[in-house]
C-alpha cells in the first residue's frame, strides 16, 4: 500500500534561495512523525508546499499514491490532507461552535446551500458539538473564540482539522505560544488522535516531539539532514551539532 504522503525531489526556490532543496519525504499510514529543525530551516514552507499554498519549482507530491501536485488547496483538503496553523488562524469573532460548524459544512458540501437556513442542518451542528466534547471545549461552545485563552484556541485549531475527517494531518507547531501548564492538554490530545490518521507535526517543544513522535525528520536549510527514530535522532552527532547544539536532551 502506498504511503499516506510522499514528496519526490521537491524543490522550491525564491530566486537564489532554496526553501525546499530536493526533499524526499515519506509519511507512512498512521504515522506519528515529527519535522524539526532550526528557525528558517523551511519547515513551514514544506507544509505550504504540501498543502498547495506554495507551488513547487519542481518535484512531485503524492497523497495515498496519487499525485496532488496540480490540485488546488481546496481539492487537497477534499482528499483528506488537512493542516493547522502555527499562529491560530480561527474565525475569531465567531463562536467556537460556529468555527467547527463551518468546517463540517464544507466537508459535507452543505456550504453551497444558498437557501436553507444553516440551523436546519442540525446533523452538522450536532457533529460539531460532539467533536468539542472530548476536547473539553463544549462548555465554551457558544462563546466567541477571542474570549478563550490561547491554549484553548489551539485546541479549536485541532477540532477544526478533525472536523474535516483528515487522512493526513499536518500540525504546524501545535503548542507554539501556549503557556507550559497548558501544553499537557495539547500533548494528550495529539496522543489520542485516531490511529488511522497519519500525523506530521512541526514542533520546537522537544518534550512534545520525543513523547509523541515515532519518527523524526530533521530539516536544515531546506534539505533533509537526517531521519530516524527519536533514539537515533537524539544520538546523532550531526543533529547534536547543527540543531540541538551541545546540550543533551
Amino acid at each position: 500500500m502506498a504511503p499516506a504522503l510522499e514528496t519526490k525531489s521537491l524543490v522550491k526556490r525564491f530566486g537564489a534561495l532554496a526553501v525546499a532543496n530536493d526533499i524526499n519525504f515519506t509519511l507512512e499510514r498512521g504515522a506519528r512523525h515529527a519535522l524539526i529543525g532550526p528557525n528558517g530551516a523551511g519547515k513551514t514552507s514544506f507544509v505550504n508546499l504540501v498543502t498547495g499554498v506554495l507551488t513547487p519549482s519542481s518535484g512531485d507530491i503524492h497523497l495515498a499514491g496519487e499525485s496532488i501536485t496540480a490540485l488546488s488547496r481546496a481539492q487537497r483538503v477534499k482528499r483528506g490532507l488537512v493542516r493547522t496553523f502555527q499562529i491560530s488562524a480561527l474565525f475569531k469573532k465567531l463562536t467556537v461552535l460556529e468555527n467547527v460548524t463551518l468546517a463540517i459544512a464544507e466537508r459535507v458540501g452543505a456550504a453551497n446551500d444558498l437557501w436553507r437556513p444553516a440551523g436546519h442542518h442540525r446533523d452538522i451542528i450536532e457533529e460539531a458539538y460532539d467533536l468539542l466534547v472530548p476536547l473539553g471545549l463544549a462548555d465554551e461552545a457558544l462563546r466567541p473564540v477571542t474570549e478563550l485563552a490561547y491554549g484553548r484556541q489551539r485546541m479549536i485549531e485541532i477540532a477544526m482539522a478533525l472536523a474535516l475527517k483528515p487522512k493526513v494531518l499536518l500540525l504546524d507547531e501545535p503548542a507554539a505560544g501556549v503557556p507550559p501548564r497548558e501544553t499537557g492538554a495539547i500533548i494528550e490530545t495529539i496522543e489520542r488522535l485516531p490511529a488511522d490518521i497519519a500525523v506530521l507535526f512541526i514542533e520546537h517543544d522537544m518534550e512534545l516531539v520525543f513523547r509523541v513522535a515515532q519518527r523524526i525528520t530533521v530539516l536544515v536549510q531546506g534539505a533533509v539532514l537526517v531521519e530516524g527514530t527519536p533514539a537515533e535522532i537524539a544520538e546523532d552527532p550531526k543533529v547534536r551539532q547543527v540543531y540541538l547544539g551541545e546540550s543533551k536532551h
Partner: peptide, 18 residues
C-alpha cells in the same frame, strides 16, 4: 455563513476546503 468565514479569515476558508 461561509461568506462570513471568508470575510473573517479567507486563508482559513481555503484551508477547510472552501
Amino acid at each position: 455563513r461561509s461568506l462570513t468565514g471568508i470575510r473573517e479569515n479567507t486563508n482559513r476558508m481555503h484551508a477547510i476546503g472552501a
